[in-house]
């Protein structure tokens, strides 16, 4: 494939003796939104946590296979370097409670001990918050703590926090599952706009969401990729019986 940014080869992963993911192969194209969809417990989170090497943090985690970012094996890079290139947003909004909104945006720099000039900091905060469509709502309360925002705002703040590091890939793990419909649609709009600057991998168990925002969809079932295709094609003409059953709501 042209423009491949991420290539997953024969990836298996799990906990203890239990393999959750079995021999995953996936190629992800640059500047696209890729949805990973599947019933709860099928290994979606495990998969994307492998991509930024967060899986290894869990005690008892096991892993086999290769993942290439821009052709380079991520398992040969230091994990912290991988994570700076591949940002992540979690199911539950998790701004740092001790930090202001401003500091939350540049938390990556603060925590990594990267010194920035005042103007540069201001610029990054403003630009990133604008990218995350949060600027207008918070520009007057930048120095308040992030935990006082609404759930949807907090989640956009977390997206901004990841974007501020200027990642190549943004991993979103069911980012709207704890949000109300209005906040959800705002985040979905945001995701679509984001693909101009970053490749987005979106985990969701919401079929409609996958259909609305993604270019490609992977259907993950019991730790295996059953089908991977253009979203438009998969939702209209699924090749596999299980995909069809899932899309028509027979299970999950």
């Amino acid at each position: 494939m042209e423009n491949t940014i991420l290539k997953i080869v024969n990836l298996s992963a799990g906990f203890g003796k239990n393999w959750v993911l079995k021999n995953i192969n996936l190629e992800i194209e640059k500047n696209k939104v890729i949805a990973i969809m599947g019933p709860s417990g099928c290994g979606k989170s495990t998969l994307i946590r492998c991509i930024n090497r967060m899986h290894e943090i869990t005690s008892g985690a096991i892993l086999e296979g290769r993942i290439y970012l821009d052709g380079k094996d991520i398992f040969l890079m230091p994990p912290v370097a991988v994570r700076r290139k591949i940002g992540m947003v979690f199911q539950r909004p998790n701004p740092f409670p001790t930090m202001s909104i401003y500091d939350n945006v540049i938390a990556g720099y603060i925590l990594n001990g990267i010194k920035l000039k005042r103007e540069e900091r201001d610029r990054i905060v403003e630009e990133t918050l604008k990218k995350a469509y949060l600027w207008e709502e918070v520009k007057d309360v930048l120095y308040k703590r992030g935990v006082f925002l609404s759930g949807g705002q907090q989640q956009r703040l977390c997206i901004a926090r990841a974007l501020a590091m200027d990642p190549e890939i943004l991993l979103l793990d069911e980012p709207t599952s704890s949000l109300d419909p209005k906040a959800t649609s705002m985040i979905e709009e945001l995701i679509i706009k984001l693909k101009k600057t970053v490749t987005v991998v979106l985990v969701t168990h919401n079929r409609a969401q996958a259909a609305r925002v993604s270019d490609y969809t992977a259907f993950l079932y019991l730790g295996e990729i059953i089908e991977f295709d253009k979203t438009s094609r998969m939702f209209t003409a699924p090749k596999d019986k299980r995909t069809e059953e899932y899309l028509t709501g027979k299970f999950g």
Partner: peptide, 20 residues
């Protein structure tokens, strides 16, 4: 999840513990 958030930003273990 705070620890995870910190790790996901590429923060190492030491700074995650000491600063988050």
């Amino acid at each position: 999840y705070l620890k995870e958030a910190s790790f996901s930003l590429g923060t190492n273990y030491t700074r995650t513990i000491l600063r988050v």
